[in-house]
């Protein structure tokens, strides 16, 4: 649609804003490149900041053209999530608080508004007001999208770190050819038990281990949920073709298990890690002897 035509008709404000954004894409991108949000992230080159700004302007134009100014689920915002949210996320990692970033996103509005008002100066006051309102609504939705994405990213980060901590706390040690062990230290909760289970089973595959030892000498207490996890681990290992031995059940824990009414009867247990290893070695056909018999040198 040519500009002359548009002047004649009364175009919906959202459409008008969409057309404006598309038309002024370059100018807006240039102005945004100097805004705090873009400047601080793209310190490498200003071109990069302009490029990012351009993508966001285009996305906003698409949302406006679809007349979905207030809809954070509008398709155009997916590009924003991808582009601007990543930018904001790196700002957040750099130490900016969410409210700082919110202010920074808000700061993107005035330069665009200024351009819009200038562009529409020849038009009726009423129309200008409608268009600026539309733009304000659109920028408000943008801020919402960015903040929502930030919060999600924050939560994902926490979750990832939590899992990393759990993994660090769960080392799998190869004791012998075909024998792996996990010495557990500290309190076992349900989430950690889950990680222990998965880590141990994965190592059975990786190490081709026929025996897996879960040593709980360093575990102060076991509740019924954790005891169940231990039993599930043993059962899953068996399905995979490995035998899981639980060692180091301290008397207090044994007492608790009995009190909880849990039957560990199907689970192979040994008093200590050493006993468990000895058992696994014997099962593999290896004998533990005090000294090498005569004539057993390499052949």
């Amino acid at each position: 649609m040519s500009e002359q035509e548009a002047e004649g008709h009364q175009v919906a404000p959202a459409q008008e804003v969409g057309d404006f954004l598309r038309l002024r894409r370059e100018q807006i991108a240039q102005r945004w490149a100097d805004a705090a949000l873009f400047r601080t992230v793209f310190t490498v080159s200003r071109d990069e900041a302009v490029e990012a700004g351009r993508a966001v302007v285009e996305a906003l134009a698409a949302v406006a053209a679809a007349e979905r100014l207030e809809d954070p689920e509008a398709d155009g915002f997916n590009v924003v999530r991808d582009q601007l949210a990543r930018t904001a996320a790196s700002r957040s990692r750099a130490g900016s608080t969410n409210s700082q970033i919110s202010t920074e996103v808000d700061a993107l509005r005035p330069p665009v508004l200024e351009l819009l008002v200038a562009d529409l100066s020849a038009r009726g006051e009423e129309h200008v007001r409608e268009c600026t309102t539309a733009l304000t609504v659109l920028m408000g939705t943008l801020r919402m999208v960015v903040l929502e994405t930030l919060l999600t990213a924050g939560q994902e980060l926490i979750e990832r770190q939590r899992l990393q901590l759990l993994e660090v706390a769960t080392p799998v040690i190869k004791l012998w050819e075909g024998i792996v062990a996990v010495p557990l230290i500290g309190t076992l909760d349900s989430a950690r038990s889950q990680v222990v289970m998965e880590t141990l089973l994965d190592s059975i595959v990786e190490q081709h281990a026929r025996f897996a030892i879960l040593d709980i000498t360093g575990v102060p207490t076991v509740d019924s949920l954790v005891a169940q996890h231990l039993m599930k681990t043993v059962a899953a290992a068996r399905l995979m073709g490995a035998e899981c031995i639980v060692s180091g059940i301290r008397p207090a824990i044994a007492q608790t298990i009995v009190h909880l009414g849990i039957d560990l009867g199907t689970v192979m247990t040994r008093a200590s890690l050493a006993d468990a290893l000895a058992y696994a070695l014997r099962q593999q056909g290896a004998d533990i002897v005090a000294h090498v018999p005569d004539g057993a040198g390499p052949r």
Binding site: I204, R238, G241
Partner: peptide
């Protein structure tokens, strides 16, 4: 492993079955 975990959770420990790695 994922299959084994799921079967156990499902309640199917298949006690009569022999298994190998």
């Amino acid at each position: 492993p994922a299959v084994a975990i799921t079967l156990v959770e499902l309640g199917l420990t298949l006690p009569g079955l022999r298994t190998a790695l």
